[in-house]
Design a protein around this nucleic acid. Structure first.
Lengths: 239, 239
DNA sequence: CCTCCTCCTGTGGTCTGACCTCTGGCCGAA
DNA sequence: TTCGGCCAGAGGTCAGACCACAGGAGGAGG
């Protein structure tokens, strides 16, 4: 019956441990703590937050696993380097799916997508594809190129094709795949000359789709994905 | 004083909590636990591993933060689904997908799977496929046929092929697809004569895989999926 | 006989308080 | 001044108890 609204909804709910984790993140933000800075001792923190030490330790473990904290026996708990955060997240998030597996799946999903999109001839959806293509071209011709934005537009172009294929399961699957890809290739970087080549390949795909030529669309899509795969690999090796 | 060689050096060092985390991952691998399966209770696990419950819980927290485990209050600790699967399922669950879309995706996913499985020639995985086939045949020959069980074995057969293809993204995606399919065709029912036909088609796929004939495997898989599609449709219309 | 509600059991969630181990600085001896 | 050991404070681990939730078994009522 005391379903009354608790006055402090922002953190008032959920398991104690999770609340502690949020509190610690808040603490770091509020105190402007930088990577390498030390947090209060476990016992002290537990006292301040009015929780037991085991609960606090679970929260710390959780944040450590997420890469936010670093624990040194005998010394204390420290704010971790954000650099480590990203590596950890990338490795964990995609559970080590290799680029080869991901690009193989691009072929599996996007070649049928191109074929279906060409066959269906859905005017509205194909217009959307054309719009995505034009946005991508426009962004690539600007003076100072925003690689981050370019990647997003590239993804949008390919997903617009998948959308035009008219299969919602395919659409969702391709969306997740591109998320993985984006996470795996976080450091946006293009092999020299890749940008122009890529645009030509995109154009070929678009033309084939608008012409309703399924076979040509399939070929163009395959050519593009394989080139992108190779470019992705060379980027890795260059690291 | 027991600095002596512990029988399991690979994990003998480092903090207890971290060792526990590794042990749990090993346990999942060794016991072939799949997403959704339950782990032993915390108290039991702590006893077996000869550690205290707080330490065990810290390890679980850590694995939970990394997405390997899912903890449900009052129910137990479970192996979590990979992020890809979780996202896809959440996205797909919302929409009412048609049988046509689902079966179209079966072709998209399972034809490449058959090709790859035939090309890789992974003896262990192909043995698993053979095992799944034999289990399916055995179940179909029993006097009183359990349609529910038959469907599960049929799914297991097809997923074993996908597994033999060696692409984890494909594996996870196909898993979700078959779940959707099972949900969409809840009332298990077979068109008269479909059972025997289906078994023949399965056999063809299996033979092609064992022979390493990728083209034949692809043809056999396509034939089977299309036949299953038609059977599924006729069932709907008969309603 | 069936249905609904209650209660019980098992499981995770949290707490208390104790002891061990490591790190790093203080401080006395050489 | 330098080197060494000492020790306070930090995290690491443990034991046992009790709380809160989920789900099924079993009894009460229809």
């Amino acid at each position: 019956m005391d379903t009354k609204d608790t006055p402090w909804e922002p953190l008032g709910q959920g398991k104690v441990t999770d609340r502690i984790a949020q509190q610690i993140l808040l603490l770091i933000a509020r105190e402007q703590l930088r990577p390498g800075d030390r947090l209060p001792a476990e016992r002290e923190l537990a006292t301040v937050l009015e929780v037991s030490r085991p609960s606090l330790r679970e929260a710390v473990r959780s944040l450590q696993a997420q890469g936010h904290l670093e624990v040194r026996h005998g010394s204390g708990v420290f704010v971790a380097e954000p650099h480590t955060v990203r590596e950890l997240r990338a490795a964990v998030l995609q559970q080590q799916l290799s680029l080869d597996e991901l690009f193989a799946m691009r072929e599996v999903l996007e070649l049928p997508a191109a074929v279906w999109a060409a066959e269906r001839r859905d005017a509205d959806k194909l217009d959307a594809v054309r719009g995505a293509y034009e946005a991508l071209v426009a962004a690539a011709e600007e003076p100072d190129i925003d690689l981050q934005r370019l990647r997003a537009l590239d993804t949008a172009f390919h997903l617009s094709i998948v959308d035009a294929a008219g299969n919602r399961f395919l659409e969702q699957t391709a969306g997740v795949l591109h998320d993985m890809l984006a996470a795996g290739m976080r450091t946006t970087m293009w092999v020299p000359g890749r940008l122009e080549t890529s645009q030509r390949e995109h154009e070929r795909i678009l033309v084939a789709l608008l012409a309703g030529d399924a076979a040509a669309a399939r070929r163009a899509a395959r050519r593009h994905i394989r080139a992108a795969h190779i470019a992705g690999l060379s980027r890795i090796e260059a690291t």
